[in-house]
């Protein structure tokens, strides 16, 4: 695949394994994902689907001792960073790619005031700007009062901490902001505030965003394109509307039904039957086979490269059901 201009992040068939207690866990299996400059992309999937690994590998933050990139490539602003050393990664972190994390309390240094933690980003990436003024600007940007500079993380509320963490990331002036479950640790009203702030900032600063969440609603409301991950594979991707309204992969269909709290014939909430796969013992083929009521013979053999999901939009799915024209299954009624 040729390097395309305008792609800030390009993950190309990337496989990552962890060695844990003698076992090899496949966290990412030939997963691909592209974020263009200025674009908001969502990544959804359940716990253990490889979302966070994808986020971290994009900043070279996977633990080198146990993690290994088996195959595939990571391109950041056109540079192949797949085999980068720790020092080379340092030149990419913050600018062009910055990151905010899930739990804003543990991701801020507890013994350092908030101001200096933001100032570190400024000094590292824009040393030419007046430091205090720039910190003030950043706080204003995330709608925090300037007294917060002198506060310690434990003195702030969860929402304020997430804003502070956001200011730390924005202080780097990133072209791409990766937000890994940025609202999961917050209560519902604060979630909405942070989400609105993220959308607003992205528009004002013109940066690209990769929003990672297990919550389809959050991703659908903030992103233009969506990727769905399952067991380390990117199984479906396309425009937010297309994926949300006409989900193609049986897993996505089930996920949406569960998220909408649809009751089935017995009046129970819809769930996806079975358990998530054991990543240490993945069978060949599609990892969803054991839970899929539409599985074909070829599904257990290998995973298709990609098929058009035929929703009328650019929308792709890695599922054999879409190989032949004419759908073999009813999108609305499966689970």
């Amino acid at each position: 695949m040729a390097v395309q201009p305008g792609n800030i992040l390009e993950i190309d068939a990337l496989s990552v394994t962890y060695r844990v207690r003698g076992k090899t866990v496949r966290a990412m299996n030939a997963a691909s994902l592209t974020v263009r400059d200025g674009e908001a992309v969502g990544l959804v999937g359940e716990s253990g689907s490889g979302k966070s690994t994808l986020a971290r590998v994009s900043l070279g933050l996977i633990p080198r001792k146990i993690a290994r990139i088996e195959s595939g490539r990571i391109l950041i602003a056109g540079r192949d960073a797949t085999r980068f050393s720790e020092t080379e990664w340092e030149s990419l972190r913050g600018d062009p790619v910055a990151m905010v994390f899930q739990d804003p309390l543990t991701y801020l240094n507890p013994v350092m005031r908030v101001g200096p933690q933001i100032a570190e980003s400024v000094r590292r990436h824009t040393p030419e700007l007046p430091l205090d003024q720039r910190v003030e600007e950043l706080l204003e940007l995330v709608k925090l009062p300037s007294v917060v500079t002198r506060a310690y993380p434990h003195e702030l509320s969860g929402g304020m901490r997430q804003r502070a963490l956001l200011a730390v990331a924005l202080g780097c002036r990133p072209r791409l902001l990766i937000a890994d479950e940025p609202t999961t640790a917050l209560d519902v009203t604060t979630q909405a505030e942070i989400l609105a702030l993220l959308k607003d900032l992205r528009r004002r600063l013109g940066m690209a965003m990769l929003l990672i969440s297990h919550d389809l609603g959050i991703v659908a409301s903030a992103c233009e394109r969506i990727y769905v991950m399952y067991a380390g594979h990117t199984i479906e991707w396309g425009g937010a509307g297309a994926v949300f309204q006409t989900p193609a992969h049986p897993y996505t269909v089930g996920l949406l039904r569960a998220a909408h709290a649809v009751r089935n014939a017995e009046g129970r909430f819809a769930t996806i039957a079975g358990d998530p796969p054991n990543l240490a013992e993945l069978p060949p083929g599609c990892p969803f086979v054991p839970r899929c009521s539409h599985a074909l013979a070829e599904c257990s053999r290998d995973m298709p490269e990609r098929f058009d999901a035929r929703s009328g939009d650019p929308h792709s799915v890695r599922c054999w059901l879409y190989e032949k024209p004419g759908l073999g299954f009813d999108r609305a009624g499966t689970g």
Binding site: L59, L61, R93, A98, F101, N109, P110, M112, R124, G171
Partner: peptide, 26 residues
């Protein structure tokens, strides 16, 4: 192994700086 070390690294700070400024005080 604490989470804030990841934040510090994600800012693009060098390993040595993170060690002295973030890890040591904790």
């Amino acid at each position: 192994s604490q989470d804030f070390v990841l934040t510090a690294k994600a800012k693009g700070l060098s390993g040595r700086y993170v060690l002295w400024r973030h890890v040591l005080p904790n």
